[in-house]
């Protein structure tokens, strides 16, 4: 019998964790909304495609890559949050926070460069 709450097998019926606040689900949805906003914001710059083609495409590709990174880690993120809440301990996802903020700063910097050039 595995008594460790983080690695014990998930129950076949009933809730996966004791969190009535649905924290993992809300957090995963917040990441999903952020991914959609990121793509929408950079898609606006496609308007410059006729003038600044390769540069705009490179920037759009960068945000698509960042968005794909968020999308592909969603399942892992949800599972990690559920396990963290069951165990009463969760390591902060510092890398995801700083990658996302960095992508936004880069998007803004490229935007400023495109406006002024």
């Amino acid at each position: 019998m595995d008594e460790n709450p983080a690695t014990a097998p998930l129950p076949a019926n009933g809730p996966l964790d004791g969190d009535p606040g649905l924290q993992p689900e809300r957090t995963a949805l917040a990441w999903g909304r952020t991914l959609l906003t990121l793509i929408a914001a950079s898609a606006m710059s496609l308007r410059w495609l006729p003038d600044q083609g390769p540069f705009v495409l490179a920037m759009f590709g960068l945000t698509i890559a960042a968005g794909s990174g968020i999308y592909l880690t969603q399942r892992r993120r949800y599972r990690r949050s559920v396990e963290g809440i069951r165990a009463g301990r969760l390591a902060p996802d510092a890398a995801a926070v700083f990658w996302t903020a960095g992508a936004c700063v880069a998007l803004g910097a490229v935007g400023v460069w495109l406006v002024l050039s």
Binding site: N4, A6, T7, E83, G84, G88, R89, L90, A91
Partner: peptide, 11 residues
């Protein structure tokens, strides 16, 4: 959630 500290290495 349990507030007890899980065994080291579990998380």
């Amino acid at each position: 959630p349990s507030t007890s500290t899980p065994p080291p290495g579990s998380v």
